[in-house]
Structures are given as C-alpha cells and as structure tokens.
C-alpha cells in the first residue's frame, strides 16, 4: 500500500515493527514501531506512559515526513 500512496503523489511514512519487510516491499520513509500486536503502545506501561511512547513515535514520523531522503531511510533513535 505504501508504495501506491507514494506513487499517487502523497508523501507517506510507514510506521511498522518488521522493518525488513518494509524495506523489502519498498517503503522510503520508515519509522520502527514497538511490536506487531501493539505497534504504537506498550502494555507494560500505564496509559499515560503508553501515550508518551506513542507521541514519540508519531513525532518521529513527522520528522520523517519533513526530511528529504534519496532512498529508503529508516528513522532510528
């Protein structure tokens, strides 16, 4: 899906746990997530902490969207 969105002309960032798949299928802006069943949360923490974790990942996704890339780029910490 990620490629088709980009191909349509909309910049897209892919937040996903399995970065290698994202790299194989061809996403250009990739932000690693926590885990497959809860990519943007971590049930080990309470609700507020989870939201803080989520905020951090989304912030990183916004950085990715506003950063020029030449090819596939993973936005690690």
């Amino acid at each position: 899906m990620v490629k088709e969105i980009e191909r349509a002309g909309i910049p897209v960032v892919h937040i996903c746990t399995v970065v290698p798949i994202s790299l194989t299928v061809g996403a250009n802006r990739i932000v690693p997530a926590i885990a497959i069943p809860h990519p943007l949360g971590n049930p080990a923490f309470d609700k507020d902490e989870q939201k803080a974790i989520r905020r951090k990942i989304v912030d990183k996704a916004l950085v990715a969207l506003t950063t020029e890339v030449d090819g596939q780029t993973v936005f690690e910490d």
Binding site: T17, V18, V19, P20
Partner: peptide, 9 residues
C-alpha cells in the same frame, strides 16, 4: 521462534 519484536527476530 517467530516473535513480534524485531529485536527478537
């Protein structure tokens, strides 16, 4: 195994 965390993989 085949875990859900990339680090585990």
């Amino acid at each position: 195994n085949e875990n859900v965390y990339l680090a585990d993989k």
